[in-house]
Design a binder for these strands. Structure first.
Lengths: 340, 340
DNA sequence: GATTTTACCGAAAACGTTTTCGATTTCGTA
DNA sequence: TACGAAATCGAAAACGTTTTCGGTAAAATC
């Protein structure tokens, strides 16, 4: 009933635990004969090293932690998939925690992961996170940590991101190129870096094209939901009847807006053109299909783990780690919510 | 630089490691004074017990494993969220693995989790899984395991499910009640239990209403994708022009079908009515919105963990565990893809 | 004052592994 | 035959915790 241990094998073979361990791990100072004997018995007894003991001895668990603001979300679940698939290839397991966009939870969970002694941490920041001591504390302990998507520019760790500013600029420029004269922006929350950057890209595009930037056309909201999209669509129709283009922070909200515009008989893209962000795969299914910025979630997850893995290996060799910023390419996916 | 240990505290205080441990864990045989002293020092030194050592000593890690066929999926990611949120409340961490609907991977991952010595396992079976020795082997080792959603009736472990047959019956009955005379079924893959049960519910509803069951109206496919929905919609239009109702195995495929029907100028629900399955939240956003069966993913995740937790506790007290089948309620959500 | 009870503490073993380092054996060579 | 080198092995320490069990001192009881 009890699991097989090295001792069991050593007793059955009349040799020491040491030799058994070394045979199994391929040490050179054990004869071919005993090595074969040990390996065979281990096989037939279905020996599995006690991970707890190995962890204690080696001070590593081949497990990493992942903190993400929201799991039920197409982009983030794609990232998770990328991380897990890559981690599995390298023999790492992933513990997932969800911060629910709450700074307090994020902090508590980071603490939990550290106390569980994961080897490293992958994190995408909560919208509410403005202070970063909980992050830098962990870095100071020498535990590798890499951020992705929602990052803090000020923290000196590795990051995997897209150029939100450039992507937003491209999106807005596309609206201008297709004839929009008065362009609104559904911006999302105030704090997170990518929300800021997308806003800046939007503003820059307006200015570069000699259009006046009007703050009243920028809509701020904390919950990025379908319903918020519907609500702001109504707001646009009542407050700013001259708006003929909208750059929306995220596809889900854009789809909410499209649904409401459809309901109100507004013609998309003729009356109002819309560009989203993320290329959430549902965007191709809605009518009209949504022009959007493709954001490579799976790829981002893969890259984030790869970087963490590099740092894990560097740490083992006691090498210095220099933070690295990895920027992934985005592209505009042109569909039917903008004129062509 | 090195983390604080019990020994560090004991030396600074001039007492034994034993007493420090007992003080921290609230044993009665340590005086209030020393207890206070220890707790205070532990606090100021920011002592965190070495999880590896605790695991080794107690033979448990407060970590469970979760194997799921696909992460990027609204229903499953809702389940994950339910599991994680509940686990966190009870102080458990969750390691997530994705089987990609592959039996081989599922087996390998189960093995991996066991060798990492997780306390228990939550699993939703891959479509291809027809043999269950890898599951029963683990149960025989006394490791608690509970299945959810995609289960195997034959395995004697706890399960959290919905009554797929009843739900499918309700869905089909709704099509009949709203006037459909010839109803097709997009069934999905052959093996998994819920695919079978939904098919049986569909068939039973036809028979109970005196309609003939026609096998050529049942479409089988392995990949439950948007594109498959589009493809089968075209097939219906070319092969069975008399079909006026479809019960689809899963919302995503239904939405693909709707998109294709829209494209071909078919009027939904007048020409063809459609009912989906899952109440994937996008179903309310598409035009026409999709009538579907609401499947409580978050709730299912919560319940699955709760049951596993019960078994974990029972095992600790060396109590016998009797497998429990937990059935969650579903309901028909009536929208615009069926007549009213 | 002697004895029992209670309160408090610590030594030591145990969990299973890894790794260092010294010991022993075997072998080839002089 | 003797000696150094190479091959093979194992004792023991270490990782940090938990828990049993016995011991001592103080308090309570007679």
């Amino acid at each position: 009933m009890k699991p097989i241990t090295l001792k069991d094998i050593s007793e059955k073979l009349g040799i020491s635990v040491t030799t058994v361990s070394k045979a199994l791990k391929g040490y050179p100072d054990v004869s071919k004969k005993t090595r074969a004997l040990v390996k065979e018995l281990a096989e037939t007894l279905n020996y599995k090293p006690n991970a707890f003991a190995v962890n204690l001895r080696t001070e590593e668990s081949k497990t990493i932690g992942l903190i993400i603001p929201e799991i039920v979300h197409h982009f983030f679940s794609s990232v998770i998939k990328g991380i897990i698939s890559q981690a599995e290839k390298k023999g790492y397991l992933v513990i997932i925690l969800q911060s629910n966009e709450s700074y307090d939870l994020e902090k508590k969970q980071l603490d939990l992961l550290v106390s569980k002694r994961v080897d490293g941490i992958l994190i995408s920041l909560a919208n509410g996170t403005a202070d970063f001591k909980h992050i830098t504390d962990i870095m100071d302990q020498g535990k590798p940590i890499v951020m992705f998507d929602k990052i803090a520019k000020i923290v000196k760790c590795s990051k995997v991101i897209i150029d939100d500013r450039k992507a937003a600029y491209t999106a807005t420029q596309h609206l201008i190129d297709t004839g929009c004269k008065r362009i609104a922006h559904f911006r999302g929350p105030l704090l997170p870096q990518n929300s800021i950057d997308r806003f800046l890209g939007y503003k820059k595009a307006l200015e570069d094209n000699g259009m006046t930037y009007d703050p009243s056309l920028v809509y701020i909201f904390d919950d990025m939901t379908f319903e918020v999209g519907e609500m702001f669509a109504r707001k646009i129709l009542s407050e700013h009847t001259d708006v003929d283009g909208i750059f929306v922070n995220t596809d889900l909200v854009a789809i909410g807006a499209i649904t409401e515009f459809n309901r109100q008989g507004v013609n998309i893209p003729k009356d109002i053109s819309i560009v989203g962000f993320s290329n959430w795969f549902m965007s191709s299914a809605i009518t009209p299909s949504l022009t959007t910025i493709n954001q490579p979630g799976f790829e981002m997850g893969k890259m984030a783990f790869k970087q963490l893995y590099r740092e894990l290996k560097a740490k083992k060799k006691k090498k210095q780690i220099t933070p690295k910023i990895i920027e992934l390419e985005t592209n505009l996916v042109q569909r039917n919510s903008t004129r062509s």
